[in-house]
Nucleic acid binder design. Structure first.
Length: 823
RNA sequence: GCCGGGGUGGCGGAACUGGUCAGACGCGGCCGGCUUAAAACCGGCUGUCCUUCGGGACAUCUGGGUUCGACUCCCAGCCCCGGCACCA
């Protein structure tokens, strides 16, 4: 008679997950102590880090993916005997959280704290092995005190400064944005078209590190090529020359930047950006003054997007610039395709060799003079700008430089200019300084005081933190809401004691997240941002995991911070993240999961339905971690089935107790091969989906023979292997079943190592090919000699059938793998 | 335009340094078992075409090439994705 299954026999994820989560919490299982002073960071300690979440809502599947990936890696490393620092925190300040608060109606602090609680609960429900003793929130004074302290260190070194500059303004968010936060002329967060304004703002001098950010990429292991490319593109280094033209008549200098000094003899006009400060002076009192002023005004009224898309236009100033290389005076125009932000805001225009200059010259009938020609060719009739450049092109119509190749010409002309102090080799960058101030409430206050007598005065370290004042009306209104906290703003000048006013702008959230990975190492330090010995022990982060969307923003800012702090001798390393892994995004029904599209599957929903373990397995099984993936509701049922199969299998094995059957055989060999595959995939290849396929295979194999009593010993060994290998992916069910099998704490056991003798097989299958086509397969003992293999292969009937008459011309043997007979 | 990454069944993908019918594993589909029945579960089949059922031919975006042997290497092209872009 079949017995009714009892409750403890049925797989109940909710109950066992709650049980083990409680055990881990009670025992502080994943808490990692700081090292003893003087401990070397070499050897068996490591730092695994995933990008911290914004608490602007609940966790979504992208987070589940990110943190499960890190969790699997962490478990394996810990079981290999490594001490793994694996902390968690919340990027709690900033537009994300503040906008969430505005939407929900409430104070940002309350909404943020509520979201943090929800996220923490979700994280615990997923069973991630996090060291909760190091949890930080960037919006707490214990944290942002040190953000302010760091700002002051940058300020002391001239790496943060204030200046008036044209800046990008988001009219919806009512705040300025960093260049990195403007995508296609729109606000990165809300998609609103940004405007241009001239404002006095705070900047970090990241441009000073442009070359180091490029050159020190060499030190980065296994950063994805696309991330490095994006950073290179963003920094936009280009080598060229600074050439000093002069205003005809006044002699005033008009420097330009060009990457093509070899085309200097082809400059037929000169152009200034409409914002160029010299324009009014050049035209003052001339007949052109009115027309030029009108043009400048018109251009200013155009949006950035309009200016970029319409046909280039401009206006003549009536003045001329003198070309230093030949003394020629060329007309100075004002043209809207010249950008004030790049180079010097002025260009020498070479219509024959630049597409844009060519268009402009055509439109206004300006001279086009070819000075570079293809090798062996000569100056051709005008047929558009000749911009192709290969190294064998030669200079023509270029005075004493005629006949040189283009690269030679570049060097020679630059050297000629340099000798006469009218130019020099120089490098241009696309990268601009990082605009860090924001006219919003929910951020870290900038710790300076403005004093009429003393100017900008830093708040002394011992007066930190400058607490963010509690105000009711925090809504953005164009100037910082902090300005309305009058009692807070009014403060004695730390320098002279006179009347001072606090800075009312707050910092960009990316400042908070540019150093959080340092704080984790020494999260509870009340005396310093960190103890350098401790930070140097854990860091750099050995494995960083996060979304591709931070390829330029966060990842470049954090690199900049680390380099600057290293230069201040606060850190012993120059790159924060040795290895980086960027995960793909999760889609459903072909679109990114989002509330507005109604295609969201919440982690809570999936956990309730299938359990955290099935979700953890599925999220990693979907496909290669670095690619975008499509969520499938049916797909998760596959891994839920796997968990259930393992559950039923183990209970059967446990019910049998000890068995007499031998604990070796083909199934044990299969188990050892699986150990090899799983370890190699995770540790060497950083691949997380194929190990699950390997586990599916092993479980399938066990199921095929599990009812054969003579194999009960093998079945037990293989089942234990499955539990051990699945533990990083499905820690709750693995732990529960391990306990039921009579084991101790599975998460504390050593990660299994395959026995090489069991991985290798004594019988191998040899492929026999004729002319590269497979015709037969032979089972032979491993290590068979080549001539024996050839003899066997030639003896095969199938081979003979395809060989026909005559003897083979050649045979190729790959030991233990194949024989190829060439007829 | 410049830079980077890709293109494999109905779908997600596997094949790691060129070497066993390319397509593991999962999803979906088909068939069978169990069941009064259904679900669940268990087992089998599932690239295309031909077949005398032994097998054979074709097949990893397209076209060439290297090689005994190519998803993998080389050349040319097409397509998709990402970054940068009036950047001088």
């Amino acid at each position: 008679m079949e017995m009714e299954p009892t409750d403890t026999d049925r797989y109940d994820p909710e109950a066992i997950e709650a049980k083990w989560q409680a055990v881990w919490a009670a025992e502080g299982s994943f808490t990692v102590p700081n090292p003893e002073p003087g401990a070397a960071s070499e050897g068996r300690s490591t730092y695994v880090l995933e990008m911290l979440p914004y608490p602007s809502g609940e966790l979504h599947m992208g987070h589940v993916f990110n943190y499960t990936l890190g969790d699997v890696f962490t478990h394996v490393r810990r079981r290999q005997g490594y001490t793994v620092l694996r902390p968690m925190g919340y990027d709690a300040f900033g537009l994300n959280s503040e906008n969430a608060a505005i939407k929900e109606g409430g104070h940002p602090r309350d909404i943020t704290n509520r979201n943090i609680e929800a996220i923490r609960r979700q994280m615990k429900r997923m069973g991630w092995a996090i060291d909760w003793s190091r949890e930080v929130s960037t919006a707490e004074p214990e944290y942002y005190r040190w953000t302010q302290w760091l700002f002051l260190r940058f300020y002391e070194r001239g790496l943060s400064y204030r200046r008036e500059a044209p800046v990008k303004w988001c009219p919806k968010d009512q705040t300025v944005l960093a260049n990195e936060q403007v995508i296609d002329g729109r606000c990165e967060r809300c998609g609103t078209e940004v405007e241009s304004k001239s404002l006095t703002q705070w900047f970090f001098k990241i441009t000073e590190y442009a070359d180091q950010l490029l050159d020190e990429m060499e030190a980065l292991e296994s950063w994805p090529e696309r991330v490095l490319t994006m950073q290179r593109n963003w920094i936009g280094r280009s080598e060229g020359a600074r050439v000093i033209f002069t205003v005809d008549g006044s002699g005033e200098e008009l420097p330009v930047f060009t990457t093509r000094p070899d085309t200097l003899f082809g400059a037929t006009f000169f152009a200034l950006a409409p914002e160029h400060p010299l324009i009014s002076q050049l035209t003052a009192g001339t007949e052109h003054e009115q027309a030029v002023a009108d043009y400048v005004r018109h251009t200013a009224a155009r949006s950035t997007v309009e200016r970029e898309t319409k046909e280039k236009d401009g206006v003549f100033t009536g003045r001329y610039a003198v070309n230093p290389v030949n003394g020629e005076a060329i007309p100075i125009w004002v043209a809207d395709y010249v950008l004030m932000e790049y180079g010097t805001g002025a260009i020498m225009a070479v219509p024959a060799h630049d597409e844009r200059d060519h268009q402009f010259a055509e439109r206004y009938g300006l001279e086009i003079r070819q000075v570079v020609a293809p090798a062996g060719g000569s100056a051709s009739a005008d047929a558009g700008a000749f911009v192709a450049h290969t190294d064998d092109e030669v200079l023509v119509n270029s005075g004493e430089f005629t006949g040189l190749t283009a690269p030679e010409g570049k060097r020679a002309i630059t050297a000629w200019l340099d000798e006469r102090s009218v130019g020099e080799a120089t490098i241009g960058y696309r990268l601009r300084d990082w605009l860090l101030s924001r006219q919003r409430y929910w951020g870290c206050p900038i710790p300076v005081v403005h004093c009429d007598a003393c100017g900008v005065v830093p708040v002394p370290d011992d007066q930190l933190p400058v607490l963010l004042p509690e105000i009711d009306d925090y809504l953005p209104k164009g100037r910082s809401p902090l300005a309305s906290a009058e009692e807070w703003v009014a403060v004695a000048c730390p320098s002279c004691g006179g009347e001072g006013r606090r800075e009312t702008d707050t910092m960009d959230t990316f400042v908070d997240s540019s150093w959080y990975f340092l704080r984790y190492a020494d999260a509870r330090n009340d005396d310093a941002a960190w103890d350098q010995q401790i930070v140097d022990f854990w860091l750099p982060v050995k494995q960083y995991i996060g979304g591709i969307e931070h390829a330029v923003l966060h990842l470049m800012y954090a690199r900049f911070f680390t380099k600057a702090l290293n230069d201040m001798e606060l850190l012993g390393f120059r790159e924060p993240f040795s290895r980086l892994f960027t995960q793909g995004m999760i889609y459903r029904h072909g679109a990114k999961m989002s509330k507005s599209k109604g295609n969201v599957v919440s982690p809570d929903e999936a956990v309730e339905r299938y359990g955290a373990d099935a979700l953890r397995l599925y999220i990693l099984y979907m496909g290669p971690a670095e690619q975008d993936k499509e969520w499938s509701d049916a797909g998760i049922e596959g891994t839920a089935r796997l968990v259930d199969r393992v559950w039923r299998l183990t209970l059967e094995v446990a019910a049998r107790g000890e068995v007499d059957a031998p604990a070796d055989g083909e199934l044990v060999r299969a188990a050892h091969r699986t150990i090899d595959r799983v370890s190699d995939d995770i540790l060497r290849r950083f691949q997380f989906h194929t190990p699950i396929a390997a586990l599916f295979e092993l479980v399938n194999e066990i199921y095929r023979v599990k009812d054969d009593p003579s194999r009960a010993g093998e079945v037990r060994v293989a089942t234990e292997t499955v539990l051990s290998l699945i533990q990083p992916y499905a820690p709750h069910v693995a732990e529960e079943l391990w306990e039921r099998l009579g084991g101790g704490r599975l998460w504390e056991t050593a990660w299994p190592v395959a026995d090489p003798a069991l991985v290798a097989s004594d019988v191998v299958e040899i492929a026999v090919q004729v002319n590269g086509k497979l015709r037969d397969r032979l089972q032979v003992p491993a290590g068979m000699a080549e001539d024996e293999l050839i003899a066997l292969a030639l003896g095969s009937e199938r081979v003979q059938a395809h060989l026909g008459e005559g003897s083979p011309r050649r045979t190729i043997v790959v030991p233990d793998r194949l024989v190829n007979v060439v007829a």
